[in-house]
């Protein structure tokens, strides 16, 4: 199994008022091609900083980020632009992640424009295909973000990420802000896209219940540190770390069959 992404001793520190507060503390992790690795933890545990460091949206203090063998931290110019096409991101809040002053067509086309992938008429056709691929009519291109529902906006954010043909997608709480029904549809879409496009996912979430449906493996973070990383089934049946057990305990215990299983889930 070859790792598409490998984090080695990644450390991210924020300059707080009088001291350096570590957001990510010496984290090492590998993600294999084609898998979905879930990175979970309470808010403030540093999981979002990991995603942003991988994408070079923030500067780590130490460690290396190897993408397909190359260190992302030292990439410059064309090499960095090539990496930007291979690794993409979908954020949590679809209200905030789309520029409210741009039409959907322009938003989805932005990556194509930045990398000058194709001339305008062809790009517009491509946008129409992308919108259809994420389950939206091509006519959505003419609308503005505020004219779309939350679920539609998240599909648009996915289409924008797919426009540059990435192989690695960071889903940063990508379904947390969605209503349960819409969440299920978007998860379904992500699964379809993954098998069709051979995508590798880093699925950042705070909710283990969502992760259980999608992840191959789960990595649990607590206060900046990686406390456990195990195949999903194993993590759910035999959690090793206290932080994992706390997250499992937080899943609402729905009384499915009261007579048969009593309190257990």
């Amino acid at each position: 199994m070859t790792a598409l992404l490998e984090l080695r001793h990644l450390t991210v520190e924020y300059a707080a008022r009088d001291r350096r507060a570590p957001a990510v503390d010496d984290l090492s992790l590998a993600i294999s091609r084609g898998e979905t690795l879930a990175l979970v933890g309470e808010s403030g545990c540093g999981k979002t900083s990991v995603g942003r460091a991988i994408l070079r949206l923030l500067e780590p203090t130490a460690g290396s980020i190897l993408f397909d063998g190359e260190d992302v931290r030292t990439m410059r110019g064309d090499v960095l632009q090539r990496f930007r096409r291979r690794a993409q991101v979908v954020f949590q809040d679809p209200n905030a992640s789309l520029d409210p002053r741009m039409r959907i067509g322009e938003i989805v086309r932005e990556g194509i424009d930045i990398h000058a992938l194709m001339p305008r008429p062809k790009a517009e056709l491509r946008v129409a295909h992308l919108l259809e691929e994420v389950g939206l009519p091509a006519s959505t291109a003419a609308r503005f973000p505020h004219e779309c529902s939350g679920g539609e906006r998240q599909r648009i954010a996915i289409a924008r990420a797919l426009a540059v043909e990435p192989e690695f997608l960071i889903l940063d709480e990508a379904v947390s802000a969605l209503d349960v029904l819409v969440r299920q549809q978007v998860l379904q879409l992500l699964a379809t896209l993954q098998s069709r496009r051979k995508l590798t996912y880093l699925f950042i979430a705070h909710d283990l219940a969502v992760v259980e449906r999608v992840a191959t493996r789960v990595a649990v973070m607590h206060r900046g540190r990686l406390v456990e990383c195990a195949p999903t089934r194993q993590l759910f049946s035999a959690p090793a770390a206290d932080a994992t057990r706390a997250l499992l305990a937080a899943i609402p215990r729905i009384p499915w069959e009261t007579r048969a299983s009593g309190e257990g889930r």
Partner: peptide, 14 residues
């Protein structure tokens, strides 16, 4: 039913 299914665990609880 859709709202119920949305919170049902993926496979029958072990």
């Amino acid at each position: 039913r859709a709202l119920v299914d949305a919170v049902r665990p993926p496979e029958p609880a072990p």
